[in-house]
Nucleic acid binder design. Structure first.
Lengths: 192, 192
DNA sequence: TGCAAGTGGAAGAATATCATCCGTTTATTG
DNA sequence: CAATAAACGGATGATATTCTTCCACTTGCA
């Protein structure tokens, strides 16, 4: 019990933590941030006790998911290979938002984020960084004249997140396919 | 107590019934089909007792909302003034789906409908009629060569409903405006 | 092999929602 | 203007759901 709070986790514990995060992301994408903690645990194949040891309450868990999501988006935006036009970089980014692990989760967390972002400095920072990276790409595409100028990055992001939501009445693959198709239409609508 | 179950309602009762339906539509659009019955009653300015007398359970209430919604959509599609091109008729229809009373409600009820439609003949009929009217317009626009041919009516309807959802973090008007803007982008993306 | 770290899941507490019931109020009718 | 049936409100007890803790048992690791 000398327990350093930052002590490295035992191997099995780390594995379970990953399973919990992945399972929670999938479940929350489909059913919103309020799915019972017990289901999240079951879905990850662990007991509730384990879930609560790793994430003392729902807020901590959801927060971790949101932070992860932003970091992946930011990383992708910053990994832009320099040889793309602004438009192509935007297409790349938008298509990536169609991936369930990013788009469907973002979609499910949108109301939760709107409510909790302001009270949490790290989340606020991540949001702003992500938005900034996205807007930068949008502006490049607009400056090239490839994209319509009457919509901003924040708004476009919102539209994408609406279209990327997991549709629970469809299978996971069908939902993902539908999202991809819808995003192509939106992209066509964005052309100048 | 000879009560004919079809007896005409007293004037105040009919008024309250309307208020309940309108309030429930708004509330459910914003927060889904599971909002507490008590809130629905409060929002309409009546007691729960009154709500339960008019709609013996939640299913009956939601069903009434859904049926109403379909009927309004069908009526609009059938009221198509003959002098429009297929494309213009489609635009008219899609824009109307942006109205909160139709689009946001449809959006909120989508999962509920997917689950309950099959067990309810009248709902199934209404769904099919509405879909048929919509598809007819879509096909007209496609036959004219004005609209891309790689998306069907059902799919387009689904896309519209995603974009038309009420965004609870925005005011009602802001949400409606955003939807309208998004629909214009989608419409541009639909052009052949 | 020893033991601290990790685990599962039963169980009690806390909360939220349902749905009924009945004393009171109101519209309607003659 | 009464008389009366219809409608109303909202307190209330029943139910269901979800949270969170706790501890006897298991397991990775030095």
């Amino acid at each position: 019990m000398t327990a350093n709070p930052e002590a490295p986790l035992r191997a099995d514990a780390r594995r379970n933590r990953e399973r919990l995060l992945a399972g929670a992301a999938a479940l929350i994408s489909a059913r919103g941030p309020d799915v019972p903690m017990e289901e999240i645990a079951q879905h990850a194949g662990v007991g509730v006790g384990t879930l609560y040891r790793r994430f003392p309450d729902r807020h901590t868990l959801v927060r971790a998911l949101a932070a992860d999501m932003f970091r992946r988006g930011i990383a992708l935006a910053e990994a832009d290979p320099g040889d793309l036009t602004g438009w192509d970089a935007l297409v790349r980014l938008v298509r990536f938002c169609g991936e369930p692990e990013l788009g469907a989760l973002a979609s499910a967390l949108r109301p939760w984020l709107a409510e909790h972002r302001d009270a949490d400095e790290e989340l606020r920072d991540l949001t702003m960084t992500w938005l900034d990276r996205f807007e930068r790409t949008v502006r490049r595409a607009q400056d090239e004249g490839a994209m319509r100028a009457d919509i901003g990055g924040a708004e476009l992001l919102n539209l994408i997140s609406l279209v990327s939501c997991r549709m629970p009445e469809l299978t996971a693959e069908a939902s993902r396919d539908a999202t991809a198709r819808y995003l192509e239409i939106v992209l066509d609508g964005l052309r100048a």
